[in-house]
Nucleic acid binder design. Structure first.
Lengths: 194, 194
DNA sequence: TAGCTCGCCTAATATAATTAGGCAATTGGC
DNA sequence: GCCAATTGCCTAATTATATTAGGCGAGCTA
């Protein structure tokens, strides 16, 4: 028989593509095995269990997203950087829904530490550099930014905005304007009593 | 045998409790049947399929949350209403993680229309009344608010904020202050060219 | 070329979803 | 209070997924 030589990368990529097609929670060992043209048990030579299969996709998605965001943010600052970063997340979520869902699934602490998660946090801080916030405001702002981006993108892709006519692109830029203004007002020129 | 007389309400409540204990995606027909003390197939007299079981929990959660939010917002306005509304969502998510996850799962359009979803949108608009926004800004603001609330709550409960020392309560009130200020600046006193 | 190791396979088990058909308790009509 | 229809749960059986145990052939190694 033709030995396909399944590599960890090949496996993760295949699983990620499948997740984008059928949804992250429909991703099963069986489905990946079928896609790879092998029997289910054969995959257990490459993964510990179904959980690990999903974790692989999560890690892949976090890395890919971090790369895209890094690329988008490079050479930009202020509102420009904010929008580029935000769009990078939104575009990724729309072109890779399964992977995006994977990226939002919880990892155990050790795995999370070895993931690209910290890179994401670092990039948020880089974007915020343009707003010149002192601690602990910067940390609060990192959480705020993450919340807005993730919240918008996930509600949008879950169809929560479909019930109103207004185009989601317009609301998105309104949101970015609003966040930019809000962060600016939190900057050093304004006294924040706390 | 003692006929337990399973009612739709009883079933939904049991499923919701179970979801809070084991997680919404671990919620299975089998697990609910066990909890109710009947065999798996018996449940199919009460539900169409596993999907419907989950939808029932989603609808229950949306109703409960809408009730809590309505209660919290009643008699308040402005920043007060904003914080009460936001806290209601956050508290619900923390005390009922499974139901909160259920509330975020996608419904088909007809079901969504018959759900408490529209009530949530209406309450957001009620909260925003205090900020006196014109359309389409109000719609944008509804989406923005929903994004911030959902984003924060879901990242927090997914453990995304655990990696930094700052207490999440502090970031939460910073976030609410920021949102309040942002909405205020979007109000009629400021010209929003669009 | 004899062997070894690796990579996939078959066999088998357990859990979950779901359909078909059975039987007993309940209930409405008399 | 009795009969019969109805109802509510049960057993049996099927299919899919997850997972473990053990087998076998292909190709590298000596």
């Amino acid at each position: 028989m033709a030995r396909a030589r399944i590599t960890p990368e090949h496996l993760a990529r295949t699983a990620a593509e499948l997740a984008d097609e059928i949804g992250f929670d429909q991703l099963t060992v069986s489905a990946v095995a079928r896609r790879l043209g092998v029997r289910d048990p054969s995959l257990y030579a490459h993964i510990e269990n179904a959980r690990e299969l999903k974790v692989r996709v999560t890690l892949l998605a976090l890395e890919e997203m971090a790369d895209k965001v890094a690329d988008a943010v490079a050479g930009r600052a202020g509102r420009d950087a904010l929008a580029a970063c935000a769009d990078a997340y939104r575009d990724y979520a729309r072109s890779h829904p399964g992977r995006y869902a994977a990226a939002r699934s919880e990892l155990d602490p050790e795995t999370a530490a070895r993931s690209a998660g910290p890179r994401h946090a670092a990039m948020m801080r880089a974007v915020l550099r343009g707003y010149d916030l002192a601690e602990p405001d910067e940390t609060d702002a990192v959480r705020f930014l993450g919340s807005v981006f993730h919240g918008y993108v996930s509600l949008e892709s879950a169809g929560a905005f479909r019930h109103t006519a207004r185009e989601t692109d317009a609301s998105w830029s309104w949101t970015l304007d609003t966040v930019d203004a809000a962060l600016r007002s939190r900057g050093p020129q304004v006294t924040t009593p706390r």
